[in-house]
Design a protein around this nucleic acid. Structure first.
Length: 731
DNA sequence: AGCACGCCGACT
DNA sequence: GTCGGCGTGCTC
């Protein structure tokens, strides 16, 4: 007997699946979308499995209203992966499965199968073609074209060949001579004589060979290659290998670096079979790429974080570029790590996973040093490019202008005089991080957060970067009425002003979230830089990520001290990665580059290691420290966050959870509850409870019952809480 | 998440 | 007298 119950994932924040009766007349398979009655209305959901029985009492059981797909959109492997991810991250399975679908499909729209819309000749149309009416040459010509093409043609082709055929087509459709149809979708051509690209250097050849050795089954390679060593070239060769075996390739890139440059490079080498998925894409383009990859019509996916859920057919290779990048971790809602899930996908598909970075995360580096990942190193910059010289610039006892010390200004002047470009890097947007009244001590505190409102002088506002609060820039002190208010500290806007005044004859371009908010403006700015000779670039980390600036020979880092004394144990790692990445922008072509880092702590051991011996030495030292302190990656963490408008309720909830866990969770350390690093944000009080275990199994054993148990606690009532497995930001 | 139900304040 | 505030609880 056919199964009578479908277990269905509904996109609601409820952990369980929901059971529905399968109507006799509608065949359903796992991976199909269905429309189901849910609560008051209807929802689009995905069938996860079929069953013969249910624990749901009969009177509450409802029928599936509609089956939306004839064939499964997600295979059993895809579903199993998604169910696994939901369990691992303790996130509702319905929401997890929904994130794997393009928006249109999530909303219940009919799947738009790949293949262009076209016109098909009907029998009566064919008859009309054989017995032409006396005076209708246009209709006759279109009918003949359709018949010649075997009975159908794409609409685009018809429109090109008969630019004025619209009326004729309308008439013939009404007459029943032609019908709307969909042209069969063709796989993208794979070997169309793409240009071969440069000959790999010996280091690249070694890397390609050793990773190819992994490609017969599951294995992870850490491609640890300095900036400019040509990692992309290695990716391209490996992708060609996978394509030659008839398998699919998934390439993940961080949001910011998915520039048309990379897409062009992949397309130029691998051809049309490369499809991109990122936030700038329209819904239909997105869906069409998704179907093509799912059906194996297109073979290479190039996409950002959420692409890791795309059901690429016959997955044969997974690449995570810049694997250390923080944007792989989703920071809210379903808090997954695309890098970690990429490894899981590779394991399930039995294929190689390549993690590439010039500054590997300590997590990945540890596995590589332990031999769990193959450690592939690319030490030489491709071509003739030299590594940059790195120096520290002591900020103490120096004249400093708008955050820039005199020697830095001198270096910038020399660089511009040589018709070369300089990057000035400051990881803080706005004009100044705080506005202050010297008369009474007033500060631009945000009324809703434990933070200051940043001065944005170009828009004349005070802006809280944490809750979004905006107010007009006050002209006099709101507290004592004094007429003069003073911006303290520097942001990129101010640096831009200072440099514009100092170097009025050179093009100056600022790149940060504010200056590139308009769609396409980042691209415009990057193009301006490529076309200029001498120029100045001011910006935040946006500048550090993967863009190629061949004329840049000087990188100035205005403030390196932020990462040195932070309470967050990952701050130093992030700072080191950022410095190395931003330094990597210098001297990529034939000109040698220089990196100059301003600091008040030039003797700090961390900076010393980084400057004298580079990121690798820093990373090994940092790993030793983490091991000694039993911190990740030598321990596994989960962070339980709670927030609420009541000042005490979040802590009350976490106290109760901590008390419950301390008695029962073997092998798990429970730290807290402690106030979050920013205890109040957007008017809500925020508290953290950190769970840590040496063994992943102990941690997950403790986590498994947690969500259900918390939901039932009376203290949970007026508190929003969330569980972050493998947290990266402790904010 | 929605969307009801439910029990307390200021309005035609 | 009721319109509506958001606390509480449920969704096969």
């Amino acid at each position: 007997m056919a199964p009578t119950i479908a277990r269905v994932a509904v996109p609601v924040p409820v952990p369980s699946l929901f059971d529905y009766r399968v109507p006799f007349d509608r065949p359903v398979t796992p991976g199909c979308r269905v429309r189901v009655p849910f609560g008051r209305g209807h929802r689009t959901a995905v069938v996860v499995e079929l069953a013969d029985a249910t624990r749901c009492p009969d009177e509450r059981l409802k029928d599936i209203a509609e089956v939306l797909d004839e064939a499964a959109l997600l295979g059993l492997d895809d579903l199993a992966f998604l169910v696994w991810a939901a369990a691992y991250y303790h996130h509702p399975v319905g929401e997890v499965i929904a994130t794997a679908l393009p928006l249109r499909l999530r909303r219940g729209r009919a799947a738009e199968p790949p293949g262009e819309p076209g016109w098909r000749l009907t029998d009566s149309g064919a008859a009309a073609w054989r017995n032409p009416p006396t005076r209708a040459p246009r209709r006759q010509a279109i009918l003949a074209a359709l018949a010649d093409a075997g009975g159908a043609l794409g609409r685009r082709v018809v429109a090109e060949r008969f630019p004025t055929g619209g009326d004729a087509l309308r008439v013939m459709r009404r007459a029943g001579w032609i019908l709307d149809c969909r042209m069969p979708a063709l796989p993208d051509p794979l070997d169309t004589g793409m240009p071969p690209g440069p000959v790999p250097n010996p280091g690249q050849l070694d890397a390609i060979a050793s990773i190819r050795g992994l490609m017969s089954g599951f294995g992870v390679a850490l491609l640890d290659g300095v900036t400019g060593s040509g990692k992309t070239e290695v990716y391209l060769h490996l992708a060609q290998t996978a394509l030659a075996k008839g398998r699919g390739v998934m390439v993940l890139v961080p949001e910011i670096s998915l520039t048309p440059q990379l897409e062009r490079r992949f397309r130029a080498r691998l051809g049309e079979t490369v499809r991109v998925l990122h936030s700038g894409l329209g819904d239909s383009e997105r869906e069409s790429a998704w179907h093509r990859l799912r059906l194996g019509l297109s073979r290479v996916l190039l996409g950002t974080r959420s692409s890791v859920f795309t059901p690429v057919a016959d997955l044969g290779l997974v690449i995570v570029d810049e694997e250390h990048d923080g944007s792989y971790k989703q920071g809210e809602g379903f808090r997954y790590s695309a890098r970690d899930l990429a490894i899981v996908r590779g394991k399930r598909a039995g294929c190689a996973v390549v993690l590439g970075s010039a500054t590997p995360s300590l997590e990945s580096l540890r596995h590589a040093l332990d031999g769990r990942y193959v450690h592939v190193r690319l030490d030489r910059r491709a071509g003739t490019a030299q590594p940059p010289r790195v120096g520290l610039l002591d900020l103490r006892d120096q004249p400093v202008y708008g955050g820039i010390a005199q020697p830095m200004l001198d270096r910038i002047a020399a660089t511009l005089a040589a018709d070369e470009q300089a990057i000035v890097f400051l990881n803080r947007r706005g004009y100044a991080p705080v506005l202050c009244c010297y008369a009474c001590g007033w500060l631009s505190d945000c009324p809703h957060c434990d933070a200051r409102q940043t001065v944005h002088r170009h828009n004349s506002v005070l802006w809280c970067h944490h809750c979004g609060r905006l107010q007009r820039l006050p002209q006099k002190c709101p507290q004592c009425g004094a007429g003069e208010l003073n911006p303290l500290g520097q942001g990129t806007e101010q640096v831009e002003d200072v440099l514009a005044a100092r170097f009025p004859d050179w093009p100056l371009i600022r790149i940060d979230r504010d200056s590139t908010a308009r769609k396409g403006s980042l691209e415009d700015k990057l193009a301006q830089i490529r076309d200029a000779t001498g120029a100045l670039l001011v910006g935040t980390q946006m500048l550090a990520k993967g863009h190629h600036f061949p004329r840049v020979t000087l990188v100035g880092v205005l403030d390196a001290d932020g990462g040195l004394f932070s309470a967050d144990f990952r701050a130093a790692e992030r700072m080191a990665q950022l410095l190395e990445q931003v330094g990597g922008r210098a001297g990529r072509a034939e000109r040698p580059g220089q990196v100059l880092i301003q600091t008040r702590y030039p003797d700090h051991p961390l900076l010393q290691t980084l400057v004298r011996q580079g990121y690798r030495a820093f990373a090994r030292e940092a790993l030793r420290e983490r091991e000694a302190a039993a911190l990740p990656p030598f321990a596994h963490q989960a962070l339980l966050r709670a927030e609420g408008s009541d000042p005490d309720a979040p802590a009350g909830l976490l106290e109760a959870v901590a008390a419950g866990l301390r008695g029962t969770a073997d092998g798990v350390d429970v730290w807290g509850p402690v106030p979050a690093p920013m205890p109040r944000r957007a008017g809500r009080y925020r508290v953290h409870l950190l769970l840590q275990a040496a063994r992943r199994e102990s941690l997950h054993r403790a986590l498994r019952p947690l969500p259900g148990w918390i939901a039932g606690l009376p203290q949970a009532r007026r508190v929003r809480w969330s569980l972050d497995v493998d947290p990266v930001d402790l904010f």
